[in-house]
Write a protein that binds this DNA or RNA. Structure first.
Lengths: 253, 253
DNA sequence: CGTATAGACCGGTATAGACCATTTTGTGCT
DNA sequence: AGCACAAAATGGTCTATACCGGTCTATACG
């Protein structure tokens, strides 16, 4: 067991090459972004692509199906595969994190990192992220401010194996969502939230500079990627007097 | 071209059978819903399922991948395929009134009408409903209970001119949404909500049988009909310790 | 000239088999 | 009893092939 640490180190450094279908997917994305294919233009057929990349047609299909899921392309039986029209509002395709949220309200967001480390997952966290209990998770605890006034305490948990180099970023400056999107190519589009009103506990009173008794809104959010895989589990406490949660409801289509 | 209509008719009548993988998918969904598999319980392995359904493993995988995309199941290499925790999404994305909401959580909803009258609209109410200030509005104040325990105080305001006979109903028994739907033919499909955590005031402490200090979630909701016309403006106060707001967020498309 | 129709091409579905990395289980040794 | 290691089981990836029904086009027919 002498080399376990070293092995883990190497395993993390030299990450395994992506599977073929992901390489093909990335190649097609790059080609589309480079303008090789205009919106609504036909891509080479699956059989042609399988020749070009020298893989079986099924492997090409796996790449294409993934792109369809991400909304990059669409298919028509008998006609071909086409580049999807670019989204009108690209920012709205991502879920808004704290920074964008505050900005949208006209505030100036800032953050103070209280904790940024790797810990063993508590049972609740492991269950939410659907990882084995006690496995390593990144813990990122931040105090969130709007115009230099404390607004929320936010504890984010992410599976370490998936984002080994995440903590090299300075999250007092960078947005977690932005890093996940740009460095890991994740499109965060779905989340489940639970909101609850409680009387602030001692820690919340101290960090949010409240005077007891005060009310806080506790939020728990589970964000999943386009494959439905849990990406982050966030526990937040918002000052009740400075934060209102607005959203629109719409009945089942 | 004489028989085109007949051909279309037959084509619609005799719809093609679903592909195998969709049949398998539906079968698994039915089994899960029927309770054959509890949340986080392991499903039969892909190889077992391919024997049971007498199809190839790839076909089973196609069904399973589709279920993963839908968030119904999740997979873990080397371990198996598991039923996902039930989605909040389903019913709660639709616009529900208090009664349906409580029922969906397994509770027995009831109501006590505290006020049911016609008053002149306060400025805030008039602005929300987009009617002229001081015009008449129906005010319906109800204490909402789940299993006979106070859960919320709800003040609903509706424009009187639009629902003159509304107060002939007994809203201790009938659901406001049901009456609006059946008697006025309204399909309530859109609403805007604002949530806020506050320390309960004296009235809330008394009505909700709280012991101060306690936290309540104040909600204001503006419901509009399919024409975008405001229908009701509701101010609610939910006991923080008995009510959690769950909902799904989805970006883009 | 218009129009059927055959054939080529397209994505969608399905098969059978192979190998991989991860995880659990079982076995046999100390 | 405890532990190391092999074996079994699992989902993930990939190949090669086949057939289906929808779509388009060129060609032959009336």
């Amino acid at each position: 067991m002498v080399y376990t640490g070293l092995y883990d180190f190497m395993r993390l450094q030299r990450q395994a090459p992506d599977p073929l279908y992901l390489q093909i997917k990335d190649g097609l994305i790059a080609a589309i972004r480079a303008g090789d294919f205009a919106p609504n233009e036909r891509l080479p057929s699956e059989r042609e692509l399988s020749e070009q990349y020298d893989v079986s047609r099924m492997t090409v299909r796996q790449a294409l199906l993934s792109l369809v899921r991400d909304g990059v392309i669409y298919t028509r039986v008998g006609k071909g595969t086409f580049v999807a029209a670019p989204k009108i509002d690209q920012q709205l395709r991502t879920l808004t994190g704290f920074s964008q949220d505050v900005q949208a309200r006209g505030g100036r967001p800032s953050s103070r990192v209280l904790d940024a480390d790797v810990v063993n997952a508590a049972p609740e966290v492991a269950a939410a992220l659907r990882i084995t209990p006690q496995s390593e998770v990144i813990r990122l605890v931040r105090l969130r401010l709007s115009d230099d006034l404390p607004l929320a305490v936010e504890k984010a948990y992410l599976p370490f194996v998936r984002f080994p180099g995440l903590l090299t970023h300075d999250f007092a400056v960078e947005s977690l969502y932005a890093v996940l999107e740009h460095d890991y190519g994740l499109a965060l589009t779905q989340a489940e939230q639970v909101l609850e009103a409680v009387v602030a506990d001692a820690e919340e009173v101290r960090l949010l500079e409240l005077t007891a008794p005060a009310a806080v809104m506790r939020m728990q959010r589970l964000t999943v990627d386009s494959d439905g895989e849990p990406v982050e589990y966030v526990l937040s406490s918002y000052r009740g007097d400075r934060y209102k949660f607005r959203f629109a409801l719409q009945a089942g289509r």
